[in-house]
Amino acid sequence: MNTKRVVALIIAAVLLFFSIGINTIITIFKTDFFSSFGSVLETETLTYENVVESGDFTNRIAHLTVNGVIQDVGEPSIWETVDYNHQAFVEQLDAVLKDDTVKAVLLSVNTPGGGVIESEEIYQKLVEIKEEKQIPIYVSMGSMAASGGYYISAPASKIFAQRETITGSIGVIMQSINYGKLAEKVGVEFETIKSGEHKDMFGGVRPSTKEELAMLQEMIDESYEHFVDIIEAGRSMSEADVKKVADGRVLGGSQALSAGLVDEIGNEEAALNALRADFGLEDAEFFEYTMDTSGWGSLLGVKLGSMLRPSAESELLSKIISSTNSPRMMYLYGDY
């Protein structure tokens, strides 16, 4: 064996050892113990109150924000962040419910909607706050408050939208990709063993039958009627008036005002000023819940995440393996 081959084998062995070592470290850091450790780091930097405008701390206005697709994708960790933290937002709603100093809520909504379950959970919490605490909830719509975004806005005492706001999209959607013909072209065959004829319905490997489509349509229709009921109750509108615009169409702020879906055209500041004036809260403290990202735990988490994060290819493969393409009902506008 010549010298070059020996050197090459040594280099290959070192690289193999190094690769095994790095993968071992990553595996260790992803065990339950270190996952719990990462959670501890995060729990030390959870929500806290940030006073935006000082005032009477016994009469306060809470500012809540929904920004991003409404879906529960779990808690952020040292490995990744999430755009919208559903559980953290629900905790904020619970905090408002238990805080006797909160006399009003300003909810800023900037979302295309999201999951039916998550939207309903927010809606129920807002109704509970409004009815049990007997306090007003004003909504300020951002660039988009569509579908599930309107669903959670409906119970508000007053809704403000901007002229450029995209709202509406009232309805329910469920989608799946049927890739059966593509698979047939490339020579892929599906072998399915099932307990009933409908077990693989809407699974993407075959066309749905008329009977199956009727089943799914019945589910969609039921959720749609519930959506309409929510708007009827929240906006004091008749079913006929709601259904004039509840066909999935999107509306601008001015169109939504004409349709009775919003109360005034104005931005977040206008909504806050109106809330203060309407309920004698001119001197009230205005605060918001914020995620503290300045602590040592968050900084350490970022460092660990960047140092020990798997490759982009490994992350993609992990997402493919762990995710499911099962269709679900959504209060969602657009392809998000």
Rank of each mutant, 00 (worst) to 15 (best):
A161Q: 03
I28C: 11
K199S: 13
S238Y: 02
A240Q: 09
D263G: 14
T293C: 10
V139E: 04
I321F: 06
K98G: 14
I321H: 07
A284T: 13
A312P: 04
A8D: 14
A233S: 10
V90C: 03
A284D: 10
I129V: 08
Y150H: 03
T81E: 15
R328K: 15
I22C: 13
F33Q: 05
S326G: 15
T165M: 06
P207E: 09
Q134N: 15
Q71K: 11
L182P: 01
S323A: 05
V66N: 01
N178V: 01
T167C: 11
G297Y: 03
Q162C: 03
Q71D: 10
A95D: 12
M1P: 01
S35C: 11
E128V: 07
S143V: 10
N59R: 15
L275H: 02
I28P: 04
Y179C: 07
G149W: 03
M330V: 01
E53S: 08
E184A: 14
F17V: 12
L106S: 00
F17T: 13
L9W: 08
L272A: 01
E239Y: 15
G38P: 13
S323W: 06
K4I: 09
W79T: 10
S323Y: 08
S169T: 09
S311T: 14
Y289A: 01
T47E: 12
P327V: 06
I193D: 09
H86L: 14
K133R: 12
V52S: 09
V250S: 14
T324M: 14
S258M: 05
W79G: 06
I137D: 02
I11Y: 08
L93R: 06
W296N: 03
I11V: 11
V69F: 01
G266D: 07
D99A: 11
E313L: 09
A270Q: 07
V105K: 03
D200P: 00
Q175T: 08
